[in-house]
Design a protein around this nucleic acid. Structure first.
Lengths: 237, 237
DNA sequence: AAAATCCAGATTGCACACAATTTGTGAGCA
DNA sequence: TGCTCACAAATTGTGTGCAATCTGGATTTT
């Protein structure tokens, strides 16, 4: 409902194909949904043709995504979807435990009915029993649940931080692990909401730790850089 | 950790042209040192002439700085040094307490002698008894101490996060408060190192909470956006 | 045959020019 | 005088062309 829309309707000026924010969201969603695997090249020209915009806009978006840890940019070599190392993965999960336990502590027993509605809605979106629920969407909504919790704290810094960590986690699970246990995670989310509603703070905290641990535990955190040496070890016997 | 590559601290690769990194460091340092007050306009043309680069490089740097919460960019209106709101300030300090207490817990009793050397060096840099120690440098080094602690955890995500929070804190103290208590803060830093060395975990945690509280407490966290309404209230009587 | 070199294709980096937007100033008018 | 409107200056947004750089494969050399 902006002046731009009005002008666009009149046909005054060809409205720009997509906003920077829209492009950012589009790429970020694709990464989180695991439609863009880690290491995928993101050439500017290709993105230009996809979104119908200039290289300059694309570059801005890529720089922003790099700052979020979703993309890596190498000089004269362009951008790729980030490939976090095993150490990066451990760091992400350590910080997630550190922060999200406190999120749970902040929220326990203080869930408003509106917040509860939001959580139930989020849980529904990741429920495998819901029809037309594809794995990609469930992965996405599984992360959204954590972001929603962070959001309910009302702290913009915490929200931003958890957004970043969730995005990187999506890359990590894709690189190092099997995310078979989606149903299990969903059950833990459901249980967590129950505990938060009942104000069982300590149990809720423990569940969050256990939950993140189960996600991390399903990974095989081996340095991918050992490929060379492991090749030697494997072939030379 | 003085003439530091701030990009390196936050975790960017050192590969991009030195120009970009140097410009980023230069602007970030100026903001942290409080040579660039919040709200200062950062016009691309001016920065181009200062650093002798193209607008494109400047824009990249500004976008990155925006992602770090150090500048704000408004469409068609350019970039300014960020002006965090009072709520932003509360959020920053809440998250700092949340994270840095855990940093202290992680570090307590596990300080290597090398780490101790680094801390002592950092403390020396912010000591008012040292000659030619200007306030700007002391403000800078006071933040560096917190970054150093985060660094000693060996967690890149934590280091990046604390870098961001320290930078924003510098903006916040400039906007809302008087940072007269530099000497006091320094003393608390010294005491904190002692407690960490002795492994007095609980006392160290408590001191960190109290330390951050004393910084926040010295601020006058009134919404600057109330300027309009408060103007009305003040003038209309 | 192995290794170094070189070349072509593709991609990013950069400089310039121009379009679009915002803001401030001043003329015109009731 | 007070208000509206229009124009001009400053700044940012965008597109284009070309230079610099990297990659991969073929060629040449030893």
């Amino acid at each position: 409902m902006s002046a731009q829309d009005a002008l666009g309707k009149i046909g005054y000026k060809k409205s720009p194909a997509l906003d920077d924010v829209a492009i950012y969201d589009s790429i970020l969603s694709a990464v989180i949904d695991q439609r863009l695997p880690p290491g995928t090249r993101l050439t500017e020209a290709e993105l230009c043709s996809i979104y119908g915009t200039s290289r300059r806009s694309i570059e801005r978006v890529l720089v922003r995504l790099e700052a979020e840890g979703v993309v890596t940019i190498e000089r004269n070599r362009g951008a790729r979807v980030a490939r976090p190392t095993a150490q990066d993965a451990r760091d992400v999960f350590d910080l997630r435990r550190l922060v999200e336990v406190q999120v749970v502590k902040l929220l326990s027993g203080r869930i408003t009915s509106q917040a509860h509605h939001r959580m139930v809605a989020s849980l529904g979106a990741e429920d495998s029993r819901v029809q037309d629920t594809q794995d990609r969407a469930r992965i996405h909504h599984s992360g959204d649940f954590h972001i929603l919790l962070a959001d309910e704290c009302g702290n913009s810094e915490i929200r931003r931080l958890v957004c970043r960590l969730v995005a990187r986690t999506s890359l990590i699970t894709q690189l190092f692990g099997n995310n078979q246990a989606l149903d299990c995670w969903h059950d833990e989310h459901v249980r967590l909401v129950e505990l938060l509603m009942e104000g069982e703070t300590e149990e809720a905290e423990a569940l969050m730790v256990q939950h993140l641990g189960s996600i991390e535990g399903a990974l095989r955190l081996v340095e991918p850089r050992d490929q060379e040496t492991s090749l030697r070890a494997a072939l030379l016997r």
